[in-house]
Amino acid sequence: MNNALEKQKETIDSKYIQQHLANERTYLAWVRTSITIMGVGFLITNLHFSTITSNAKMDDALSKIIGLSSIIAGIFALIISTISYFIKGNDINNQTFKFSRILVVYLSVALSLIFIIFGAYYLDVWGLF
């Protein structure tokens, strides 16, 4: 009788506990990553406007672009990772897991563009641009 009662309480999620916990850890890592991306953009913008005393329009514009693009990249990383988390959860239960490329490609492209803007900003600040 106890064995039958235990079988009734078992859910599809409980069959794949380790995989679901790994999926959750991965999601939380993406959340931390998105917070960090937004924080770096905020930090760069604040440092620029609190330490630079010149009225260089190009520096100001690049600093604002870095801050805004970092926030947008972080928000999109959070949205995509949340969607990916739920899709992976269903795929784990259905044993149809497929490798997801969209989040990795998006983040790589977005951060590359932000780093290029960083480079332009520093070239301009150092007077090389």
Rank of each mutant, 00 (worst) to 15 (best):
R101F: 15
R101D: 13
I66D: 02
K15R: 12
A110G: 08
I92P: 00
H48W: 01
V40E: 07
F86H: 02
Q95I: 03
I116E: 01
Y16L: 01
R25L: 12
F129N: 14
K9F: 11
L21V: 03
G39T: 02
T51W: 13
G39P: 00
N46F: 11
Y122L: 15
S34F: 06
E6A: 07
G74Y: 02
I17W: 03
V104P: 11
L47G: 06
G127H: 02
Y122M: 15
V31S: 07
T11A: 00
A77P: 07
A4I: 14
L43F: 12
A4K: 12
Q8L: 07
K57W: 14
D60T: 05
Y16N: 00
Y27D: 06
I117K: 01
Y106M: 06
N90V: 13
I65T: 09
A110D: 11
N23E: 05
G119F: 07
A22Y: 04
T36D: 15
T53I: 10
A110M: 09
F86W: 08
F97I: 09
T11F: 00
S34H: 03
Q19R: 00
A56V: 09
M1S: 08
L5M: 11
L68Q: 14
N55K: 14
Q19M: 03
N3F: 14
W126H: 06
I35D: 13
S54D: 14
T82D: 14
V125W: 12
S69H: 11
T96A: 09
L111Y: 10
S54K: 08
L78F: 14
N93L: 02
I102W: 05
I66E: 03
I65C: 00
T45P: 04
I66N: 01
I79S: 07
Y27P: 10
A4W: 11
S81N: 04
Q18P: 03
S34A: 08
I52N: 15
Y27R: 05
K7A: 08
M38Q: 10
Y85D: 04
D124C: 07
I92V: 02
G119N: 01
S81R: 02
F49H: 09
I117N: 09
G41C: 00
L78V: 05
I37H: 04
I83N: 05
N23V: 01
I114A: 07
D124S: 12
T26P: 08
I117S: 05
Y106W: 10
K98Q: 12
F99T: 13
A61S: 06
K9Q: 12
A29G: 15
I92A: 00
I116C: 01
Q19W: 00
E24W: 12
N93T: 08
G119V: 03
Q19G: 00
L111E: 14
G127I: 03
I37C: 05
S81G: 03
S70F: 01
I80Q: 03
Q95S: 11
T33M: 15
Q95L: 08
D91C: 02
W30H: 10
L62E: 09
N90E: 15
E24R: 13
F115Y: 15
A56Q: 11
D60F: 04
T82G: 15
F86Y: 04
H48R: 01
W126M: 06
V105R: 01
G67I: 00
I12M: 12
